[in-house]
Amino acid sequence: MSSSAIPYSTIRMEGASVAEFSWDIRSPLDRALVAGPYGAQGKAGVSLTEIHNFDLAQVMARRGKAGEMIAAAKARFSAAAPETPRAVSAADATLIWSGPDQFLVLSKGGKHSIEALAAGFAGSASLSDQSHARALISVSGDKARAMLAKLSSIDLHPSVFAVGAAAATSMDHTSVTLWRGKDRDGQAVFNLLVFATFAESLWHTILDSAAEYGVTIGHSDELA
């Protein structure tokens, strides 16, 4: 699936009228996200970045085929797919545990889109496209953990939730996939995949929770 805007215009066959339309791609946070500072002034304690336009595939092992699925993943990503709640960084994808014998493949640019993955996992796993089903928010900053404590019941202490830890959990009664990416500038980075139709609502809840610490908001096309 292409993930960029497809400008398109057509001239109607029979009539003389000209219809013009384009396939603008819009993130579910397109309206709610306003880049810049938010909340308390001064040095921002929380940094929120929405990652645009990614490919996300759900890979679920078929009955009794978990081993074959892991082998297929190894062949494709040269990495061991997570068999416990962890996020594994491969060269050009992140494999995030999403439940028993299943994981998500997060990548960019169509290289590991569902179509690209199909052949490798044929027979060992069922694939389901989730690229448009989620919004991806990256949370960092001095107060990231304090802010997330208002949303998440998971213990995010570094001794418990180290780099690479992942959780299929809930925020505001809504399922989310949460994992800790590589540290950036010495600070922990927490990534959140949230359901697209809940994204705007959850975004406002996140802003409310973060406002007291001061927030800097942005978006990016790069995976964290």
Partner: peptide, 13 residues
């Protein structure tokens, strides 16, 4: 404990 069919289960389970 997990239900018998949780995850991909095992063949014969």
């Amino acid at each position: 404990e997990a239900a018998a069919g949780a995850g991909a289960a095992k063949v014969g389970a």
